[in-house]
């Protein structure tokens, strides 16, 4: 295995045969079924899957925003029963409060998580994280004045300012354009290298997963999705996107994961193929036009 401590220590985040679904009766939809996951402390795991597979539901389970119908979700051996600032979540939709400034948004989180800090300490704390994501010039701007990339940076700073033990990144970069995404990927990696944390990254981008993660776990297609066999990423860190592409390991891994995902997609399509519907054999009884048809009389006269 790639890291030694992964097998030695107990896992930081765990899903134990967890299943969850929504609705009741005929509306019932099983989203995740028998999901097993163990994330070691300070490990960077990427979960990759098609949209609609249930990736966000997986994050909800880990964050404690949803509880599994069966099975268990645990953090450091303790049952996850409700959300906590110990597991910071970064949402795809930024979810910044539009009436607060960058500073205000982060301050709201910091004040709540560190109620004992004095006003000036909180201010210092918030400014430290704004600095970390390079947003100091935009400190007093409101979200609608910022670009998508900047907004996601604020969201990152807010999550980091809670100083969580676990970071759950729910497709944080998929709404951004390719260039901004690359910049933010590097920034997130950079921050992670400096202060390692347990991270679960949800993504649909194979390159992103390989660049950032220690392990890539594909999520099979829903409904009733589950986690498949993991692909370890044996590339050395720190990784540089410019040299990474040339490494044979990278290309091999990418090919493997891509073909696995494509295979998943094909499988599902075969399952979902609908049988041809037999149409009823219908023929009109007679071909005469109805007598009260407007214009009929005139044509007869003519």
């Amino acid at each position: 295995m790639y890291t030694t401590d992964m097998t030695d220590s107990s896992p930081c985040l765990e899903l134990d045969d967890a299943s969850i679904g929504y609705g009741t009766g005929s509306q019932r939809l099983e989203v995740l079924q028998n999901v097993n996951l163990a994330v070691a402390p300070n490990e960077f795991v990427a979960v990759i899957g098609f949209s609609g597979a249930g990736k966000s539901t997986l994050v909800s389970l880990l964050a404690g925003l949803a509880t599994p119908d069966s099975g268990r979700a645990r953090m450091l051996g303790e049952k996850i029963s409700r959300p906590s600032p110990r597991r910071g979540v970064m949402f795809q939709s930024y979810s910044l409060l539009p009436w607060l400034t960058v500073f205000g948004n982060i301050q709201l989180a910091a004040k709540q998580v560190f109620p004992k800090k004095s006003k000036s300490e909180i201010c210092e704390h918030v400014e430290h994280y704004i600095e970390m994501v390079n947003l100091t010039p935009a400190r007093d701007k409101q979200p609608h004045e910022l670009s998508g990339g900047m907004r996601q940076r604020v969201s990152l700073a807010r999550t980091l300012a809670m100083e969580p033990e676990v970071l759950l990144l729910d497709e944080p970069l998929s709404a951004l354009d390719a260039l901004t995404r690359a910049v933010l990927q590097d920034e997130i990696l950079d921050i992670w290298e400096k202060q390692r944390k347990t991270v679960v990254l949800i993504t649909n981008d194979v390159d992103e997963a390989i660049l950032m993660a220690d392990r890539i776990i594909p999520l099979t297609m829903g409904p009733g999705a589950t986690l498949a066999e993991a692909f370890p990423v044996p590339l050395p860190r720190p990784r540089d996107r410019r040299t990474l592409i040339d490494q044979p390991d990278y290309q091999k891994l990418k090919a493997e994961i891509t073909s696995y995902l494509v295979g998943l997609n094909r499988q599902v399509r075969e399952i979902r193929i609908s049988p041809t519907l037999q149409m009823p054999d219908v023929a009109p009884k007679q071909f005469r036009l109805p007598s009260k048809m407007p214009g009929m009389k005139r044509s007869r006269i003519a």
């Binding site: 925003l65 906590s84 979540v89 949402f91 939709s93 979810s95 709540q112 998580v113």
Partner: peptide, 14 residues
Amino acid sequence: VDKDHMNVARILRL
């Protein structure tokens, strides 16, 4: 109210 805002509130335990 945005569901994600409520989720943030829940995570922060407001």
